[in-house]
Design a protein around this nucleic acid. Structure first.
Ligand SMILES: [Mn+2]
Ligand SMILES: [Mn+2]
Ligand SMILES: [Zn+2]
Ligand SMILES: [Zn+2]
Lengths: 145, 145
DNA sequence: TGTCAAATGATAATGATTATCATGACAATG
DNA sequence: CATTGTCATGATAATCATTATCATTTGACA
């Protein structure tokens, strides 16, 4: 945890950004909810518990900054809000998602299953892949009778 | 074109919806821009050319209805608007997308490349797949020097 | 022709995100 | 130590896509 924050701090410094108390509190919330998919509002509520003076605008700005640095990925599951997903440290691919149509759960697949597919796309479509987004919609293991 | 509209008409009737002139004009616009990814506003502007009295709310309602019927898929590329993508007739999978980070172009891959991956996901994660969304971000063939 | 539910269009309301702006923190400088 | 300048913050207003509301229209059917 502390080491992870330290590395994010260095990443910020390398672009001449500071790790302010507000930013640190926000990062801590994200780390403590690594498996969730929090909206800006969600993050705001959680950060307020440890830093009540923080403003909503600062949370938005911090999330935008972290997205720029690729610390988090900004995603959208079709409800009206953006969600912020901590990227696996050092991972060069964004993980996949399983969205359950029954219960709404969102599970993650950390393993990269797209290696072969990407080779095909690069060759056949002459497209240089930098990133990907893969989501499956269906019925999760819990909801299958 | 006419046959396609006829089949959509039947699909509507089978759920006791009517193909009103407004709905038909909207469907025609979608068919005429099959390869594009139009926002509700885009559709509205285009429909107005052939049906100037139409209201924006009706366009939204029609697009929602067509999404329900799976005639179109509602997608989101991260800019602040939903886009509506005509589904290949009879296709059971939603096509994939290539988004160029350089020029912003969005190309399509109609071929389904996820067959093997889906088998793995169904087995290993015990997840019953109903649909998928796959988007690659990178540099398109036009922008590669 | 009269009836009724569905559909429409104008417009207001909502709600997430972004912009603005005065204030505060803080490092560097003299 | 006082001054200056830059970056960051928080309150709040503005924006803008989407949804809700409601009076009116349409069209099928009795
Ligand atoms: Mn995730
Ligand atoms: Mn498409
Ligand atoms: Zn489930
Ligand atoms: Zn390009």
């Amino acid at each position: 945890m502390e080491q992870r924050i330290d590395r994010i701090k260095k990443q910020l410094h390398s672009q001449s950004y500071k790790l302010t108390p507000q930013r640190e509190a926000t990062v801590r919330v994200l780390l403590e909810h690594e498996d969730d998919h929090l909206s800006a509002e969600d993050v705001y509520m959680l950060v307020k518990e440890k830093y009540p003076e923080i403003g909503l605008a600062t949370v938005y700005r911090t999330l935008e900054l972290l997205t720029e640095l690729k610390v988090v990925d900004k995603i959208n599951f079709g409800d009206g809000v953006s969600r912020y997903d901590l990227r696996q440290e050092g991972a060069d691919h964004f993980h996949h998602h399983l969205v359950c149509l029954e219960c709404g759960a969102v599970d993650e697949i950390q393993e990269d299953l797209l290696g072969d597919v990407e080779k095909i796309v690069e060759k056949r479509w002459n497209f240089e892949i930098k990133d990907h987004r893969l989501t499956f919609h269906g019925i999760c293991y819990r909801c299958r009778t």
